[in-house]
Simulated scan of single mutants.
Amino acid sequence: MNQESLSKLSNEELLKKYTAAKTMVWLLAIVLTGVLLFFIYVSIQDGLTPLLAVPLALSAIIPANVKNMNILKKEMDSRK
């Protein structure tokens, strides 16, 4: 996220973006954990399945969103 574009946003917009990013990180983490556990269960029942790679590959999105959250939080803290 560009620092210039963040400086143009109001405090309410920053808070809204931060809350949305935080919600998405939590939802994605919960869904990916559930999917991983389900695919592990399926693998135990029917044998190893390549579907185990899907939640592991999609989990790479979480650190990017956490980085975005930290940038938003830093900008909000700098305005206080």
Rank of each mutant, 00 (worst) to 15 (best):
Q45L: 15
M1F: 07
W26C: 10
Y18C: 04
N68D: 07
W26Q: 11
L56G: 11
A57L: 13
F39D: 04
V54C: 00
E4M: 02
G34F: 04
S7N: 10
P63C: 03
L36V: 07
F39I: 02
W26K: 10
S10Q: 02
A60H: 03
E12A: 14
D46C: 12
P55T: 01
A20C: 05
F39E: 12
L48M: 13
K67C: 07
N2W: 04
E13H: 03
E75C: 02
L37R: 03
K16T: 12
Q3V: 06
V42T: 10
L32Q: 07
L37H: 03
L9V: 02
L28Q: 10
T23A: 09
L37Q: 08
T49A: 13
I44Y: 14
P50M: 11
N11G: 05
L37S: 08
K74W: 04
L58W: 10
F39Y: 11
M69K: 05
E75A: 11
L15P: 04
V35D: 11
N70K: 15
F38R: 05
A20W: 07
Y41M: 10
V42D: 12
Y41P: 00
V54A: 05
L6A: 00
A60S: 11
T23F: 09
E4Q: 08
S43I: 03
G34D: 04
K74Y: 06
N68W: 09
L58C: 07
V66P: 00
T49Y: 08
L51N: 13
L27F: 09
A53R: 09
L36T: 08
L56A: 08
F39M: 10
N11D: 09
